[in-house]
Amino acid sequence: MRRGLAIPIFIIFSCIIISTAIMMRPFGEPKSTEMDDYIIKNAQNETGANNAVTSVVFDYRGFDTLGEATVLFTAVAGVLLVLRRYIHE
């Protein structure tokens, strides 16, 4: 019963994955490039940073970095909370 269910599911998912791989666009040719072009053209003038990646990470997508910093803070707080009794001994 389980085997009879597993084989069709395996075949269906294999077909989906293989057809996706065949239909994939060539590497480095995205479908819409408006956002990339905007950042490449305006990042230096708007933020003044030569490193466009940093201008995206800290300026255009600042919220993402805030979340990243919060993840780090939460991880450190969790480790210190769990292992607190080893600190003062």
Binding site: T47, A49, T54, S55, F58, D59, T65, L72
Partner: peptide, 15 residues
């Protein structure tokens, strides 16, 4: 150059 970006880099670096 770059306005607040170096300051943000420094604070994230300290963190």
């Amino acid at each position: 150059t770059a306005g607040t970006l170096p300051l943000m880099n420094i604070s994230v670096g300290l963190k």
